[in-house]
Amino acid sequence: MAGFLQQLVNGLSLGSIYALVALGYTMVYGIIQLINFAHGDVLMVGAYVGFAAVVFLKLSIWWAFLLAMGCTALLGILIERVAYRPLRHRGAPRLAALITAIGVSLFLENSGLLLFRPEIRSYPPGLILNRPLSISLGGIDFTVTTFQVTILAVTGILLLFLQYIVYWTKTGKAMRAVADDADAARLMGIDVDKTISFTFALGSAFAAVAGVLLGLYYNAIDPLMGIMPGLKAFIAAVLGGIGLIPGAVLGGFSLGFLEALVSGYWSSRMRDPIVFLLLILILLFKPSGLLGKNQVEKV
């Protein structure tokens, strides 16, 4: 039982990172129905900006987070502006948008390989306090590190922030309106393009935080580090119900738990195949996701 609880605690930190990435996927999917393949690579860029801030600019890790968020927000806006917006304005088929997204993803990965070199880099040690805390809960002992608590706290703060933006601000209202019906929103005087840009900025900033956290978690960053977390976060978003913000959080945490349990009780080699098996199973049995409702298609 203690082992099980320990795995759950471990799953919680990886799960919150997936949740942060999945939010970006789900927001973009919710608003323009596009799988933004480049999202995982935005995460990678965020991790590198954070790395540069800490190593070259000698900033503290918190400033590194903020700087990474700012840079990737701009990158997100730029990607949307240059690659996706022209297609959207012309009413290009979904296939074209998807292929463009793959192009952007490959562009970021290979630019990363060229600029940052393919070698693995590590964040310097001691950026975030990482001390084990022994906790006893109802007679069961398990350990939590202060780093795990930090990850959870950062995720919690960002989730509250997102909740505030989406439900309490005018921009958030515009986001929900555009996601619901872009044409109707335009008629109501909402600047649809600006709202979409904002969504990309927000999602990318969240991905940057996830990138820096992942870099600290695995103590390694490389130009292709975004591919796997990107794929898994997408699966998390589908698991929770794509397009739904609570779904992304639920999906992220569930995926984190599942991974921790598989590597704890079986083998860490089986982790990735099991996650993709999960995707196939969701698509077979509940394609709308855990929180999604089945929708009848309107013509």
């Binding site: 690659a83 292929i99 463009t100 793959i102 952007v104 993803s105 562009f107």
Partner: peptide, 20 residues
């Protein structure tokens, strides 16, 4: 290799935008 992939990815984006 990397340089080539950058060219291809740019080509892909440009073709999709201008000649889908």
């Amino acid at each position: 290799a990397e340089f080539r992939m950058i060219i291809y990815s740019l080509l892909l984006i440009l073709v999709m935008i201008f000649r889908p």
